[in-house]
């Protein structure tokens, strides 16, 4: 069923997005400690369509996700965050979902920010909404991570028309048009940058909204470290040269 249309004050075509129209996809690899709480947090916000793409976890991630009320799509091998995200996109494409939200499984996203993404999407004229940590206060972000993210932004923005403030954010909302047009090829973390480049190449409109990041010892340990960041950047450039 198509969502009803309404006009905002700026006369842009806007839509009413119902919570049942939004499908959450959480790519996860060995996240048994955090996955239950992430799912419960999203459910508490009134969203019930939750999917966990278990990327070949060797712990009890899938079991915990099911217990918390999510539907589990399982990779039998660990193929990387990008591969799991593309699996989520293909699921959404085949199922014909109107909207999908991608979020990290380590609990670093604040549930209040879900509404910010949904409202920006509902305001219209945008196919992908990115939750930007750098439009929010980032004083709690470790210096090394801030520097790595900054380098990733510079590198990605070289290939983009829009100047993104957070190219590595895993908190994103996609509409049907984006889901239909995005075909990611990078299996690793480089997919974050690749998605933005592909979006621009396919004429998709993007927007950023400020989102808070919850830094815990766990989420800090799970994110990209210095070594992974450098490897991701090299893979990203290598892929562009030898595509």
């Amino acid at each position: 069923m198509q969502a009803p249309l309404r006009f905002s004050k700026s006369f842009e075509l806007a839509v009413m997005i119902r919570k049942t129209d939004v499908h959450f996809f959480i790519p996860a690899f060995n996240e048994e400690q955090a996955i239950s709480e992430v799912i419960k947090t999203v459910r508490r916000c009134g969203y019930t369509n939750l999917y966990v793409v278990d990327d070949g976890s060797t712990d009890r991630t899938a079991e915990k996700a099911r217990q918390a009320g999510a539907y589990v799509i399982r990779h039998f091998l660990n193929r990387g965050a990008g591969a799991a995200t593309q699996t989520a996109i293909e699921w959404a494409r085949k199922a014909g979902y109107a909207y999908m939200v991608l979020m990290d499984a380590d609990g670093q996203h604040s549930p209040q920010d879900i509404e910010a993404l949904v409202q920006r999407m509902a305001a219209g004229s945008c196919d992908i909404v990115i939750g930007s940590r750098f439009l929010h206060d980032v004083s709690a972000m470790p210096r090394t991570r801030r520097w790595l993210n900054h380098m990733a932004n510079v590198l990605t923005n070289l290939f983009c028309n829009y100047r993104y403030t957070d190219t590595q954010s895993g908190f994103r909302m996609l509409n049907r048009r984006a889901v239909e047009n995005l075909h990611l090829t990078l299996d690793g973390y480089g997919f974050c940058s690749e998605m933005l480049i592909l979006a621009e190449q396919n004429g998709l409109k993007t927007a950023e909204v400020p989102t808070e990041t919850i830094y815990t010892r766990y989420s800090l340990a799970k994110g990209q470290d210095f070594y992974t960041g450098i490897r991701t950047a090299l893979n990203f450039v290598w892929n562009i040269i030898f595509k």
Partner: peptide
Amino acid sequence: LTDLTRQLALRDHPEDRTP
């Protein structure tokens, strides 16, 4: 390998969950 993993992940789901 990724394509194969994805194809296997997307199939064999209950009818109400099949994409």
